[in-house]
Design a protein around this nucleic acid. Sequence first.
DNA 1: CAAATAGTTGAACAATCATTCAACTGTTCA
DNA 2: TGAACAGTTGAATGATTGTTCAACTATTTG
Lengths: 126, 126
Amino acid sequence: MKFYDIELDRTDCTVIHQEVVDAVREKMPDDDLLLDLADCFKLFSDSTRLKILYALMEAEMCVCDISVLLGMTKSSVSHQLRVLKQSNLVKYRKAGRVIYYSLADDHVRTICRMGMEHVREDEIEN
Amino acid sequence: MKFYDIELDRTDCTVIHQEVVDAVREKMPDDDLLLDLADCFKLFSDSTRLKILYALMEAEMCVCDISVLLGMTKSSVSHQLRVLKQSNLVKYRKAGRVIYYSLADDHVRTICRMGMEHVREDEIEN
DNA sequence: CAAATAGTTGAACAATCATTCAACTGTTCA
DNA sequence: TGAACAGTTGAATGATTGTTCAACTATTTG
């Protein structure tokens, strides 16, 4: 029997452990869920956003306050607040022309604390 | 007294709450630490890396196994494994020309679980 | 030794994304 | 009413980053 020149699979592998692959595949979370999870972590993966979140852990603040605290333009702060707002990490209340932002719930604290523990441990190790 | 045309501060704000800003500034973690934290979360912010990590939660796997499981090239898997290795999230052992990867410790599980809780709650809300 | 295969590596490319800039809305207040 | 200011928005820009491609190393095996 002749082997035709079929299109190569993206994985030019002789699978080493088919049983392992099959077993793991069954346990894998859905792709959609993993995409959502990645998006969630992406929110915490920028230091400007982290600064904003850590600031809001301490107090409700308006955009100007945050701008001055971080030494950044109102525009750039506002752009990031929009991202955090859309993901329900922060909420806001309007008072005249001033808009006060605060944390939406305690998830932010929990997630930041978790990551911080990992970072600090690495510091000790190295 | 004349106002000279000095360079504008990046924050064209009348600070609304100087006391709040000062109090928060005192509590803020160091910039370096926040950068490290952001880098830590960045590792979890890509769905390919998450897939690899979730796979390794189930079993030790070689690069070919992971490639087949994810339907990706060995090259792209290898690139991501390098990132995870450099950050001490995965470790490896060599057996002939096969290299087996596994999780370095339990941090990955803890951090993923934490994020997953947040994602699932959002699912219920919306 | 030579062929085959596991895995790595660096450059190139495309997509993503944070910041900037300028223009804009909306509210206060004189 | 109009000036001043808080905040938002969209387009442009530059940096970062995930994937691809091709070439490479290293190990096994016939």
